[in-house]
């Protein structure tokens, strides 16, 4: 499982990355929305933890673009501006969850795992649907699309266990 934490607070990125690494997660960080989209373009990311209030394109705009380009990527909003309007707005735009700072690290991990599980359920359904479609078409070409991420997940899980 690969995480991306997006926040304009460098120290938050630094210590959270270190902590989650120690807990066995592969964590990338980005200090801005633009950087976040850049990384998403290069690397396969499963879950994004996204701050709302940032310089440049804010969290809500970043969320919109992520969901447009990679709808399968789960996004958890994490913000100091915990208003109901923001939360509703974010959830409507496809965010998996909306957390208000300061959130405890165990809770954050719990939410990340939940988002991951959701994503996996979703992928499973998509794969099953595709397999059904392929069987119906009588084609045996296994699409590389769903296989890619599955391997990555397995790899990540393995590497976590190794450490």
């Amino acid at each position: 499982m690969k995480l991306l934490i997006v926040d304009d607070e460098e120290r938050f990125l630094h210590s959270t990355q270190k902590l989650l690494n120690r807990k066995g997660y592969d964590v990338e960080t980005a200090p801005s929305g633009e950087k976040c989209l850049e990384i998403l373009g290069e690397k396969a990311i499963d879950v994004v933890i996204l701050d709302v209030k940032m310089p440049g394109i804010g969290g809500m705009e970043t969320l919109r673009r992520i969901k447009r380009e990679q709808p399968m990527t789960e996004v958890i909003m994490l913000t100091g501006h915990g208003t109901a309007e923001y939360a509703v707005d974010a959830l409507l735009r496809g965010a998996a969850d909306f957390l208000v700072k300061p959130v405890s690290i165990p809770e954050l991990i719990e939410k990340v795992e939940a988002a991951m599980a959701r994503r996996m359920v979703l992928e499973e359904k998509i794969r099953a649907a595709k397999a059904l479609k392929a069987a119906e078409a009588g084609l045996s070409t296994q699409s590389s699309d769903p296989a890619g991420p599955e391997e990555t997940i397995t790899n990540t899980a393995n590497s976590g266990k190794k450490q």
Binding site: F12, S15, K18, L19, R22, K23, G82, K101, P102, V103
Partner: peptide
């Protein structure tokens, strides 16, 4: 309050790291 929440989050991360 908004501004305080950010440092609080950092302290929380630091604390979790230290605890770990």
């Amino acid at each position: 309050a908004h501004e305080i929440n950010n440092p609080l989050q950092i302290i929380r991360s630091e604390q979790a790291l230290m605890d770990f």
